[in-house]
């Protein structure tokens, strides 16, 4: 991560522990994940042991320690989505992408994550791609979305 950027984030917060989670969130937002170097620098600034920072960061679902793919796919595994068949959707994603939740595909294009609930239960099952929510996904819809993403990546586009 760019040192200036990290410095800028650290300077925005007083060096006390209550801001730790907010700092981690901002760093992850900027970098896409929490790198070792970033954690060491945060620890030095807050005068905490590196282990404490890892202790906090690994506790929460939000933090990642691996860079995510160009398209970060979050599949909701909440109750409503489960009842409406999100396990089949997960199977399909795993099969199509060749990765398991928490992993990034070898070409760096996709990363997959399951999340407890995206809060759009009325339109279950839902998944989000880089924050954009797709409702009522089934195998066919997932395949269409993935094909669209792959072709837009091949064309060099950033968006869907």
């Amino acid at each position: 991560m760019n040192n200036d950027k990290l410095e800028e984030i650290l300077n925005r917060y007083p060096p006390s522990r209550e801001h730790l989670i907010a700092i981690l969130q901002e760093v992850q937002e900027a970098e896409g994940f929490l790198s070792r170097e970033a954690i060491v620098r945060i620890a030095a600034r807050l005068k905490l042991a590196t282990g404490k920072i890892y202790g906090v960061a690994t506790f929460y679902n939000q933090f990642r320690f691996q860079s995510s793919g160009k398209y970060h796919i979050q599949l909701c595994r909440g109750t409503a989505c489960h009842v409406k068949g999100s396990s089949a959707a997960l199977d399909c994603l795993e099969r199509e992408l060749g990765i398991h939740p928490g992993e990034t595909s070898a070409d760096g294009l996709f990363s997959l994550e399951v999340t407890p609930c995206l809060g759009a239960c009325g339109l279950a099952p839902v998944m989000s791609v880089n924050g954009e929510i797709h409702s009522c996904v089934d195998e066919i819809k997932i395949k269409t979305i993935l094909t669209a993403l792959r072709s837009s990546a091949a064309a060099g586009g950033d968006e869907l």
Binding site: G55, V56, F59, Y60, N61, F63, T115
Partner: peptide
């Protein structure tokens, strides 16, 4: 505003307080 980092147990009030203090929830 404080942003939670995704832990269901933080709905429990004492865990929420720990989380707000920058600790494990």
């Amino acid at each position: 505003l404080k942003k939670g980092a995704g832990a269901f147990v933080c709905g429990e009030e004492t865990a929420l307080i720990n989380s707000m203090e920058g600790k494990r929830g």
